[in-house]
Write a protein that binds this DNA or RNA. Sequence first.
DNA 1: CCTACCGATCGGTAGG
DNA 2: CCTACCGATCGGTAGG
Lengths: 225, 225
Amino acid sequence: MNVCALPAVPEDPSPRPRGRPRKTLAGRDDGNRRRELIDGAARLFRQNGFAATSTRDIAAAAGMRSGSPFYHFKSKGDLLHAVMEEGMCAAIDRQKQALNAVAALPRDPRRDLAVLIRHHFDVLLGPGSDFIPVMLYEARSLTDEQRAGMALLQEQYEAAWTPVLALLHARGLLRADVKLARLLMLGALNWSAQWYRPGGGASLDGLTAAALALFIAKDGPSNTV
Amino acid sequence: MNVCALPAVPEDPSPRPRGRPRKTLAGRDDGNRRRELIDGAARLFRQNGFAATSTRDIAAAAGMRSGSPFYHFKSKGDLLHAVMEEGMCAAIDRQKQALNAVAALPRDPRRDLAVLIRHHFDVLLGPGSDFIPVMLYEARSLTDEQRAGMALLQEQYEAAWTPVLALLHARGLLRADVKLARLLMLGALNWSAQWYRPGGGASLDGLTAAALALFIAKDGPSNTV
DNA sequence: CCTACCGATCGGTAGG
DNA sequence: CCTACCGATCGGTAGG
């Protein structure tokens, strides 16, 4: 049921020729060549878009010849799907870790939201942050089936936001409707991938503080101005 | 200096063959065939992306043969640029009208922001709203020069937001930094183009109210809960 | 994973 | 604006 639980298993179990698992014909090292293709594809897809990136570009980025990516992936579209799945699974995993880190502390929805926002900025703008932007902007190039699968992962990721926002709403710190607030807030964050440049003024912590100040009222009614 | 002021003048004044301005060879009607190309291109670029849309698709959408778009535009890239310029000029124009409509009333930054947000949703999600999403998502396919020109138009559009946000900030109704607030708010709105479906729950007025509730504190410190 | 290759499609042009 | 066309590039495959 959970696609993310199987990180090393390829989707179709047949691509390896037959006998020995490595050092066939011209194979340089082991199966992490597949990973190099995914990483390069993520970078190129983000930079130029899926349709404007050729499989030859991707092959070259991994030091291969034009036909070789198709030894690892059935099609260019499957490579795109792999990039997105990889990105979403990593994001979900890291989100869980971030929430676990504060789970033992006294409950504080404002702090929890700060954790979610900060983590989201990290996934979006931190090191190795090509996967999620690709996922956000290239979904139309997936098959319907693939897109449905990614939507499930996305819901899983965004589900963590709902109880936090609901609690903030119940305490009067979030005035907008919870569902619309989630859409608008995630949009504000996602859009940062369009304008944020590392080392240009704001840090990810600074962005998190600004977003929190924008979205959430100052603490309780007792604690006025 | 202002590109938008010249709506009917094409960029290069040479494409018409020579003599009579219309009814040459196989020309059906007048020069608004160019407009049909722009409209169709806007729709297709939004739906499939610039790189995944062929000039043949665009020609077919306007009822032409494959070579004919190049009678109106020097290249596919110029067509993209025309779509974006068209969209931005219309958006800036309509924004001015929306602000003028409330300019005579007593100054109220919260209401002004509501006007800006509501207008932005209209430009983004209303009828004929393909141009701005294309502009937002396909800028990387422009030349550097074209992109710089579009950035100017975008700054012109966003400049209207700054004084309104600054006033809200001065009155304590907007807690985040004004510049970051503008980026985050416009991001929240822009992202709606990804999820909003007309007739699906929220109206544009409802969205505007939700965004305002999310971003701006309830009225002055005297008017507590 | 490379070599060699194929059919399809694409942006664009000449000439009317 | 159409007809006819070109060179380039693309995703993908066979065979080793």
